[in-house]
Simulated assay, not measured.
Amino acid sequence: MKTHALTQLLASTSAPALLLKEGDTHWSNDAFNSLAKSDRHQLEHWGNEGKGEIVVCAGIVFERLSAGDHTLIIASGHRAASQQRQLMQALIPQLQKGISPFFALPQVLCELLDWESSAACTTLNNHQLTLVGHWHAGEQHPPQTLELHDSLAASLYIHQAPTTQIQEWIKATRDPLMPTSGIWLGQRIEDASGETIGHLAVWDKEPKANLTDSIHLLQLCADLVGAWLPPKNAESEPTAYTADPLTHLPQRDALDNALSQCEKSFPEHEYMLALIDIDGLSRINAEFGHQEGDRVLCTYADKLRHECRPNDQVFRFGGDEFVLLMPVSKKAAPIIKRLDLLNRSMAEQLNHPFKASAGYALMTEANGSSDELMLLADSRLKQAKKKT
């Protein structure tokens, strides 16, 4: 190891660095010397005799690099700039297309950090999570509803629990996503008010990933998502609405309130409403049984929820109908294309024909009236169904 060049390079960095040679302190920079004496002794001891690739000292993650008779102890993060740049380059174009970060991030993290699996979940209620994005073994997997008490991430949702957690297990768990053994790294996601809104996780049976880099990137992603989500309206009081017992989606009372809020904020804000009807649900019930019909409704509800951006809202309108209410900018969200892709995804997953028709309407077209908005969307839905 060319120690002169190395020490010159690290001399002015803000990252604490210590160089050991044959077990003795060979060099350290000013950032390391400014640490408390007890912390310096802990790092020296760990550098010579400690186990593991990383250690946390003075609230900083350190890693150990060895070459010959030299050992370098350095604060993590020296690869952060490159990884952050790659993360942004992969994530921002997807956000610009209206794709939820909860859907996009698992693939980005697996490919960037070399984990086999990753998941991004949002809270559905006090007992359930919505698995929005799930990347495993090089493939994107469909969204689904998970029971919180079965998830390895349950500890992230405990009040005042650490926001970043590592778990290792050597036998099967109750978590349906996990292999029989492995290492799991989870990161809680909070909004600007500090409320928990979901989590990110990566895991692998035999991880090849750098744990330090993974912790750094997961924490950065959580900060990005928390900052990206729009702030809640401080003036609005939370109201409890009834959830559909089958799909767990909010129902008409919640839709009526959401439409009322849209009227109040129009014309400053534009909205699009999509009224969606599953074609031939009665035929599915007759041909495959009501249990299959219920499975179709639940699967579609999960997938439709996954298509939502953070400000979008999805409701079960009744029977085989759903409503998607979306704030839109000058460039409308590409919802038509996404719903077409959802139809194909449903047919593939269910292994039998599937089609859902939709009618779309803008609040501008309805002159700010939510009643007119619903009537216009319903009229266009009927036109769409006639074409099928």
Rank of each mutant, 00 (worst) to 15 (best):
C57H: 06
A58C: 02
G59W: 06
G59A: 02
I60S: 08
V61T: 12
V61A: 11
F62A: 04
F62L: 08
F62E: 10
E63W: 09
R64D: 06
L65A: 08
L65H: 13
L65Y: 13
S66R: 13
S66Y: 02
A67P: 00
A67F: 12
A67T: 10
A67N: 09
G68D: 12
D69T: 13
D69C: 07
H70R: 06
L72P: 01
L72R: 00
L72M: 11
L72W: 02
I73R: 01
I73Q: 09
I73G: 03
I73Y: 02
I74Q: 14
I74W: 06
I74F: 03
A75Q: 14
S76H: 12
S76L: 12
G77N: 06
G77F: 03
R79A: 06
R79S: 12
A80G: 05
A80F: 14
A80C: 00
A81F: 11
A81L: 10
A81P: 01
A81Q: 15
A81K: 08
A81H: 08
S82K: 07
Q83G: 05
Q83C: 05
Q84H: 14
Q84M: 15
Q84C: 08
R85L: 10
L87G: 01
L87W: 01
M88A: 15
M88T: 15
M88W: 13
M88Q: 15
Q89T: 11
Q89S: 09
Q89R: 15
A90D: 09
A90L: 12
L91R: 04
L91C: 04
L91T: 04
I92G: 05
I92W: 09
I92P: 00
P93V: 00
P93F: 06
Q94N: 06
Q94V: 01
Q94K: 13
Q94R: 10
L95C: 05
L95P: 04
Q96F: 06
Q96C: 08
Q96E: 15
K97I: 03
K97E: 04
G98T: 05
I99Q: 13
I99N: 07
S100E: 01
S100A: 10
S100W: 05
P101M: 11
P101T: 10
P101S: 08
P101G: 10
F102V: 00
A104D: 00
A104F: 03
A104M: 04
L105P: 04
Q107N: 08
V108A: 11
L109E: 01
L109K: 08
L109V: 11
E111M: 06
E111K: 11
L112H: 04
L113N: 03
L113P: 02
L113M: 01
W115D: 00
W115G: 01
E116A: 14
